[in-house]
Structures are given as structure tokens and as C-alpha cells.
């Protein structure tokens, strides 16, 4: 007989809900998204789950599996032997239905970031060395798992004060571009609220793309803010240098 696995999946909407148990046959190599598709096909056709690529590339299938922020399509079922697999929607964003959350706030914030303003007109040639650093940030698939786990947004509901790690690395990507001329430092210190991040690194831990969000993105940005606001001496030296 095929091995059986038990999933406990959140069913509900904005007004509330609860976890419901499903038992399904295990298939070798199965990921949690496969298991949910099996449930959809055989037991609960109305189960809502957002997905697109099933290859850890589109960033649609973010959820919480046994309390960890993960991609459903990248998490293997056999990572959880002899235990029930609890699947819940992301905690930080409002539930639309079952596992689908409303992440539109993130897109609103992305639109508020000053766009790339190149010093010269494209096309231009860049040295690889100059873009290595920002290419790390461009690996982002906008799954918003980092936004989900960031305690500032998750526990303190400070969405009005801090834009979250995804927005920080988007700004780092633009700010560190060798040809960019826009200044995002005032925004970072002001309404984007970089000071709310206390560098506790959960965003880095959950990022499925392995981006060093804190060490390579947020801390260097904090240092740039410090250049401008907390280091009059350094500012003077830089002025003379120019």
C-alpha cells in the first residue's frame, strides 16, 4: 500500500477559518504544491492556492509550512517524515481565500521607489565587476516571503512606517547601480523607514533565492544613511574629495 501523508490546510477567508485535514497517497519526489493539487483534484476542488511556474521562479506560491515561510513548489513532502504538514497562508498579508493572500501593498510600495535615472542615455556598456553586486538583488522573484517574516511588518504591523526588506534590496539595486543618479537616502531614512529594521536577519534566512538581504543590501544602505546623517566629519572629507 502506498504511504499516506496527512496535510492540515487552512480553509477560510478574511472573516476567519480553520485548518482542515486531508490524507493523500505519497508520491516519490512530491512537493507540497503537488499534494495540494492532489487535494484539489480529488477531495476539495474549491481549495484556493496561487501558483504559476512550479519551478521556484514566479514567486506566486508563498505560504507557511509548519510555521516556516516557504515556497510550496520548492518544499518537498519528504522533508516532513512522521508529522502532519500544516499549510497556512502568509501571516502578514490579508487572506483572500484559503492559501491566497492579498500582496498588493508590496506593489504599491514598489511604485513609490524612484526609478532608475541613468547619467547617460542607454545603451551603455558596463563592466561585470560593477554590476555583480546589484545582480545579486536582481535574482529576487518577488515572492514576498521576506516581507512576510520581517517582524516589523509581521508582529508590529508597521506597514505605514517600514517598507520591508524586499523594498530595501530594490532600493539597494538602484542606489548601487554605477550609472544611477537618483538619491534615495532621504526616502530610506524617512518614509521607507530603514531605521525600523534591526538587522535580525530573518529576511535573509527565508529568501528562496539566497539573497544576502541584510548583509549586502540593508546594512550597506544603513551605512549610506549614516554617511549623510550621522557622520559630519566623513561628509566633510567626501566634499573635499570631490
Amino acid at each position: 500500500m502506498a504511504e499516506e501523508i496527512t496535510l492540515s490546510v487552512f480553509r477560510g477567508d478574511r472573516s476567519g477559518g480553520r485548518e482542515q485535514e486531508y490524507k493523500i497517497p505519497a508520491v516519490p519526489g512530491m512537493v507540497v504544491l503537488d499534494a495540494l493539487h492532489y487535494i484539489q483534484a480529488h477531495q476539495a476542488p474549491d481549495l484556493a492556492v496561487r501558483w504559476n511556474c512550479k519551478a521556484a521562479h514566479c514567486g506566486s506560491c508563498s505560504a507557511e509550512i509548519n510555521g516556516s515561510a516557504k515556497l510550496l513548489c520548492k518544499t518537498r513532502v519528504d522533508d516532513y517524515t512522521d508529522e502532519v504538514i500544516h499549510v497556512r497562508p502568509m501571516h502578514t498579508f490579508p487572506v483572500i481565500k484559503d492559501l491566497v493572500t492579498d500582496v498588493s501593498w508590496n506593489y504599491e510600495k514598489l511604485r513609490q521607489i524612484p526609478a532608475f535615472q541613468p547619467a547617460i542615455k542607454a545603451p551603455f556598456t558596463l563592466h561585470q565587476r560593477d554590476v555583480d553586486r546589484i545582480q545579486e538583488f536582481r535574482k529576487c522573484i518577488e515572492c514576498f516571503l521576506c516581507q512576510n517574516i520581517c517582524h516589523v511588518l509581521r508582529d508590529h504591523s508597521a506597514k505605514d512606517a517600514y517598507w520591508g526588506p524586499r523594498m530595501m534590496i530594490r532600493m539597494a539595486e538602484l542606489q548601487m547601480h554605477p550609472l544611477d543618479t537618483a538619491d534615495r537616502i532621504d526616502l530610506l531614512k524617512g518614509s521607507a523607514g530603514i531605521g525600523y529594521c534591526n538587522i535580525t536577519k530573518c529576511c535573509t534566512v527565508v529568501c528562496p533565492q539566497g539573497i544576502n538581504i541584510t548583509d549586502n543590501g540593508i546594512i550597506p544602505l544603513k551605512e549610506r544613511v549614516a554617511d549623510k546623517y550621522f557622520d559630519p566629519l566623513g561628509g566633510l572629507v567626501r566634499k573635499m574629495h570631490k
Binding site: D155, H156, N198, Y229
Partner: peptide, 28 residues
């Protein structure tokens, strides 16, 4: 703040991170 990732923080209502005294001093 937080104790570990995803562990709920329940003790305090206010959180200012490193935007106010005392932790704003970490910028130095």
C-alpha cells in the same frame, strides 16, 4: 525582537527599531 524568525512577539506594543533613542545611537 524577535526571539527567532516567525516566533510571535507579544510582550510590547511599541516598536521603534533604531529610529529613536536609545537604539538610534547604533548609527554611530
Amino acid at each position: 525582537d524577535p526571539m527567532a524568525c516567525g516566533v510571535p512577539e507579544s510582550r510590547r506594543k511599541f516598536y521603534f527599531g533604531e529610529t529613536r533613542f536609545p537604539f538610534i545611537w547604533t548609527n554611530l
